[in-house]
Amino acid sequence: MLEIKNLRAKVGDREILKGISLTVKTGEVHAIMGPNGSGKSTLAQVLAGRDTYEVTGGEATYQGKDLLEMAPEERARQGLFMAFQYPVEIPGVSTMYLLRAGLNAARKQQGLEELDAMDFLSLVKEQAKLVEMDESLMNRSVNEGFSGGEKKRNEIFQMAVLQPKLAILDETDSGLDIDALRIVANGVNRLRGPDRAIIVVTHYQRLLNYIVPDRVHVLYEGRIVKSGGKELALELEDKGYSWIEEKLARA
């Protein structure tokens, strides 16, 4: 599904990703953990196509195609979805409009008919119910005046409607109470399936109790310094990142 080789990216003169390699196969769920500022969001944004970051080396192949060549909208239409760590407020554009435009752009690309208003509405209502999202929120401007938790839930709601092939969730669990966390986890688990893949960026083991990952990676100063099974997350929770730092220092 996704193959990243020695990916490097910088902002201005500052190199943030210093050679990342990661392979995610269909059906898998990967967790990326790492201290603040290690480059997790940068990786997510680069994969989604944010041009603030300049890719200076390496490659990323998505479903056999060169991901880095594609415009952000192209990636989205081909089934890549990123849930933002800090979702943007967009006054004057409703979530409903955005989703309908996005969904239909993807359908058009795949040679499918656009969804008419009725079908779209019933799809949206069904998904809103599943992620327990208040319908009034979807008719409002994207994220405008939403609480932190509502913003995160809106990201999961959009993911549920767009049904991506590869979902990258950037700290969607941060700042959520336990009920909201359960809703987010359920949303992810519903999406899980043999022909999809999910990358969750998180600081907390607690999410991984609900979304059990196949692989866990530790990102540290722009590199993946350790990878392992789900027990790695527990170990990290136990020993903290200083454990990684010490190991690196000794090596």
Partner: peptide, 20 residues
């Protein structure tokens, strides 16, 4: 970027923001 990451073409996203 947010709009484009949901599948809207760049010019459509620009138009939508100007319209808003």
């Amino acid at each position: 970027f947010y709009l484009r990451s949901r599948g809207l073409a760049r010019e459509d996203a620009r138009s939508l923001l100007i319209h808003a």
